[in-house]
Design a protein around this nucleic acid. Structure first.
Length: 565
RNA sequence: GCCCUUGUAGUUCAAUGGAUAGAACAGGAGACUUCUAAGCUCUUGAUGUAGGUUCGAUUCCUGCCAGGGGCACCA
C-alpha cells in the first residue's frame, strides 16, 4: 500500500503541477490517529511553487480523491499541509489473510534477493574469556545475520577468532612456566587467569621479553616446539567453549577464519605493495594517510620483528573474505573503539581493491560498562557471559516460583533469561554505550524481552483454546471497528525493510513493543472467545496474525518464544 | 595538542528536517466473580549551553561546557 500511495501521489504531482522527481515521503504517522499513511509532498514542493502548502494539498487531494485505489478510505489535510490517508476495514481484513497465508515469510523483503551476504560477528579472543561485551556483539551480529536472511540473500555467518598475538605468546609463557610442557587445558578459568597474569608479568618483568618474543615467532611460524603443542591444545579447548556458549545464545557459524591465517595472507599482500601503498619506516611497514585525511592516523601493518599486526591481519581477512566465495556484501560488527583502526585499514584497502571497501559495511556498537566500571578483560574482574546468563536464569526461576502459577523449567528458563539480556542490548540504536547495571537494565516488566515473549505466549494460549473455531473469514464483520492492532500489524514489512536498510535491529524492537502494547490493551478490554459472537472468528484471526508477527519479529532479534510463561 | 564520537524526564532508552518530543522503570491513583497480573487504565516529569541555516531543528552547521574513544610496532 505504501508503494501504491507513493505512485498515486507521483501521478497527482505530475497531473496537477507538472512536477516530477520530488523527494517526498509516504510513511506511517507517528500518531496513529493521523491515519494509516501520511505524506509531506505538499510541504516539500511549496517553496518551489511559491504557494501555501495547504492550497497545494487541497489541489492534490482533489486529484487523489478522483483517482484513489481500492483500500483507501479517507484522504484528509492536516497540520501544516500533511495529507493523511486512512484505509478501509476490508483492506485490513485482506491483510490479515495475507499474514496467515505467508506465515514465517510475513515481513520478509526481497531487497537482496540473489545476493550473497557475509556477516562477521562475535569474534573471540582465545585465552580471553567470553564476557558481556561479547554478548553484546553476538546479540547485534546475530540479529543482523537474521535481517540479512530476511532480505532474501544467501547468508554466511563467519567469525574471526584472534588466535595469535603477542598476548597469546605471553599466556603460553606463563602456562609453560606453571604447568610444564604436558599441559592439557580442562578449565577455562585457568586460561583466563593466566592471560591476566601474563599481561601483568610482561609489563613488570623485562627479563622475559626475549623468551616471549621467541614463543611468538614459533607460534606465528607454526614451528614444532613445546609452546606450539600446548598452544594447539589450548586453541582447540577455547574454540569448543566458544561454540558451546554461542550455541546457547542461539548462534551458529558457517565459517571460521583465524587471525593466524589472515595474518600470513595480509603480510604477503602488504609486502607486495611497498612502496606503492605502504612505507617502510624504522624497520616496520606502515601506512601513512594523505594530508587530506586528517581523521585517520598512521598505523603499523608489519612490526619491526616482521610479524603482521592487527592491521595487516584485517587486510588479509578482507582478501580471504572476497576470495573464498563471491560475495556482494560483507558486514562486520565490532565495538566502536575499533572505528579508527578500520578507517586506516579501509583507507589502505581502497588502494588495493576498491571493491573490498565498496562492498564492506562496518556496523559498530557502543561498549558496555558494568555497574559504572568500564570493562577490561585484560585486567580481569569482568563477568563471564556464562556467569551472567546463569545469574539471570536463576532470577527467572525464582520469579516463577514466587508467581503462584505453574513453575516453568528447562529450556524455557534460559529462553527468558536470554531474551531479557538480548533485549537490553538490542533496544538501543547500536553505536551508543550501554551502561549495564543488572539491577535496572535487566527488566522482566514493562519494556523488556519477557514482556514481548509474554504477549506472544498469551496470544498463543488463546489460539490453542480456539482450535475448533473456524477462523476462515472473507471480510471484517459489519459491526467491526478497526483497532490499533490491525493498524500496527500492516506496517511490519516496512519496519523490517527499514531495519535491513540501516542494519539496525532496534527498529524491530521499538515496533514489537508498540505492537505488544496494542495487543495487550485490546486484550484487556475485549473478550476474544465468545460463544455465539459473530466477530469472534475475526478476533481469533487478528490474534493469530499478531502471534505470527511477534514470532517473526522476535526471530529476527534472535529471541525465542517460550511454550509457556 | 590533533582527530572521531555522545549529551533528551530522577533513571534506562525512542523520535528518514515535520504535526501536541514517545515509551518503560521509579513516584502517585485505579479497575477486574471474564481467554495467563511478567498484564491493563489514569497521572507527575525532559531536548547540556550560545548562536546560525530553514516555512519548520532533538535531528544540519559553528563556538563553548561535559562524558567516551583513537593518535606507530597490543588486539
Amino acid at each position: 500500500m505504501e508503494l501504491t500511495i507513493t505512485a498515486l501521489i507521483e501521478h497527482a504531482l505530475r497531473e496537477t503541477f507538472s512536477i516530477e522527481g520530488v523527494s517526498f515521503v509516504v510513511e506511517q504517522p507517528k500518531d496513529i490517529s493521523h491515519g494509516d499513511y501520511s505524506t509531506n509532498a505538499a510541504l516539500v514542493i511549496s517553496k518551489q511553487l511559491g504557494k501555501n502548502p495547504k492550497e497545494i494539498a487541497e489541489a492534490l487531494v482533489t486529484y487523489l480523491e478522483e483517482n484513489k485505489t481500492i483500500g483507501i478510505d479517507t484522504i484528509t489535510i492536516a497540520g501544516a499541509g500533511f495529507i493523511n490517508f486512512s484505509l478501509t476495514k476490508e483492506y485490513f481484513a485482506e491483510q490479515l489473510k495475507t499474514i496467515l497465508e505467508q506465515q514465517e515469510q510475513w515481513g520478509s523483503s526481497d531487497v537482496h534477493k540473489g545476493k550473497h551476504i557475509l556477516v562477521e560477528h562475535s569474534s573471540p579472543n582465545l585465552f580471553k574469556p567470553f564476557h558481556i561485551g561479547h554478548v553484546m556483539n553476538n546479540a547485534i551480529g546475530e540479529s543482523i545475520k537474521r535481517l540479512a536472511q530476511a532480505s532474501s540473500a544467501t547468508v554466511t555467518a563467519m567469525t574471526f577468532p584472534s588466535d595469535i598475538s603477542l598476548g597469546v605468546a605471553k599466556t603460553i609463557f606463563i602456562l609453560l612456566e606453571k604447568f610444564g610442557t604436558d599441559f592439557i587445558p580442562t578449565d577455562l578459568g585457568v586460561l583466563g587467569d593466566s592471560y591476566v597474569e601474563a599481561t601483568k608479568r610482561y609489563d613488570e618483568d623485562e627479563s622475559i621479553h626475549a623468551r616471549v618474543k621467541e614463543i611468538a615467532d614459533n607460534l606465528y611460524n607454526s614451528t614444532p616446539s613445546p609452546e606450539w603443542t600446548v598452544y594447539q591444545a589450548c586453541k582447540k579447548f577455547n574454540i569448543e567453549y566458544f561454540e558451546k556458549i554461542t550455541a546457547r545464545l542461539g548462534s551458529h557459524f558457517d565459517t571460521y577464519i583465524y587471525e593466524s591465517e589472515a595474518g600470513a595472507v595480509g603480510k604477503e599482500i602488504v609486502l607486495g605493495h611497498v612502496p606503492a601503498v605502504f612505507t617502510e619506516s624504522e624497520g616496520a611497514v606502515v601506512y601513512i594517510p594523505e594530508e587530506s585525511r586528517k581523521d585517520i592516523n598512521t598505523a603499523v601493518f608489519i612490526n619491526s620483528q616482521g610479524n603482521p599486526t592487527y592491521e595487516a591481519k584485517d587486510i588479509g581477512l578482507l582478501s580471504m573474505k572476497f576470495h573464498q566465495s563471491p560475495i556482494d556484501l560483507s558486514i562486520f560488527i565490532t565495538d566502536n573503539q575499533q572505528v579508527p583502526h578500520f578507517q586506516v585499514v579501509l583507507a589502505a584497502a581502497e588502494k588495493l581493491h576498491t571493491e573490498w571497501v565498496e562492498k564492506s559495511v562496518h556496523v559498530h556498537h557502543g561498549r558496555m560498562s558494568f555497574k559504572g566500571q568500564k570493562m577490561s578483560s585484560r585486567l580481569g574482574g569482568v563477568p563471564l557471559a556464562e556467569t551472567l546468563i546463569d545469574t539471570v536464569s536463576e532470577e527467572v526461576l525464582e520469579r516463577s516460583q514466587n508467581s503462584g502459577k505453574e513453575i516453568i523449567a528447562g529450556d524455557i528458563v534460559d529462553e527468558i533469561a536470554i531474551a531479557a539480556l538480548k533485549f537490553s542490548i538490542l533496544r538501543a540504536a547500536a553505536g551508543k554505550d550501554i551502561n549495564f547495571d543488572p539491577e535496572t537494565s535487566l527488566s522482566f516488566e514493562g519494556d523488556s524481552g519477557p514482556y514481548l515473549q509474554y504477549s506472544t505466549v498469551r496470544a498463543k494460549s488463546i489460539l490453542v483454546k480456539a482450535e475448533n473455531l473456524d477462523i476462515d473469514f472473507s471480510a471484517a464483520p459489519k459491526e467491526w471497528q478497526t483497532t490499533n492492532l490491525e493498524k500496527m500489524l500492516i506496517h511490519f514489512p516496512e519496519v523490517v525493510t527499514h531495519a535491513i536498510e540501516a542494519w539496525s535491529p532496534h527498529f524491530i524492537v521499538t515496533y514489537l513493543l508498540e505492537l505488544s502494547q496494542a495487543f495487550n490493551s485490546w486484550y484487556g478490554t475485549t473478550k476474544i472467545l465468545v460463544e455465539g459472537d459473530d466477530t469472534s472468528p475475526y478476533k481469533v484471526a487478528l490474534t493469530k496474525a499478531f502471534a505470527q508477527t511477534m514470532t517473526n519479529g522476535l526471530q529476527l532479534l534472535g529471541i525465542k518464544v517460550p511454550s509457556k510463561m
